[in-house]
Design a binder for these strands. Structure first.
Lengths: 95, 95
DNA sequence: TGTGTACTTTCCGAGTTGGAAAGTACAGGC
DNA sequence: GCCTGTACTTTCCAACTCGGAAAGTACACA
């Protein structure tokens, strides 16, 4: 029962799952897809970045700032491992 | 992102998954399988019972007390729905 | 009366979460 | 130069949630 709490928290699970499915995504896109506030997304990204699960790239589109989020290799491994653990729990064999 | 928090908490997820796989199980069996303490299991069962997800049956084996745990129909439905929601978030089958 | 089994309940400190609101950085308009 | 808007960040905070430790309950047996 070793579910990585960095991924298991519902909001972060949604963030990581979304990022696992794409190459990278804009901050605003993730925020809108998951219907969460700027502050909540920002804080969770901070947590995931500190764990090296997510990489943050800041740039511009025209003159406006824009932030892109991307799962790192480490983040992909952690996510895969999380899903495997989940599978193990959900299919718990008897005895 | 509507993951039933009653099921999502790691320890309860393990309890519910285990109970979903059997007809009923003894308190001590669940406690030992999941390697958790009496008090933790007791408290989580209380929570799940309050939500009508689990049914507790007390009886005896010889003269000794024994407690059996069983997912209710409602608990099964909630668990199935939880797994479906999870699948939706993960964007992938869970075995 | 004392001990052991099988849980229950209480106490408690620690950690997590999201909302609200203030803060930062920079570009464009007046 | 000042104000406003965009795009996040950070801080403050109140509400939970969790598990460990330990005390409590209810029997049965010696």
């Amino acid at each position: 029962m070793n579910l990585d709490p960095l991924i298991h928290a519902p909001t972060r699970l949604a963030i990581v799952s979304l990022l696992a499915a794409v190459d990278e995504a804009e901050f605003a896109f993730v925020r809108d897809q998951l219907e969460i506030s700027d502050s909540v997304l920002s804080k969770h990204i901070g947590t995931l970045e500190a764990a090296h699960y997510v990489e943050v790239r800041k740039g511009h589109v025209g003159k406006r700032p824009r932030t892109w989020l991307k799962l790192t290799q480490h983040g992909h491994v952690a996510f895969t491992s999380y899903v495997d653990t989940l599978r193990g729990i959900l299919n718990r064999p008897l005895g």
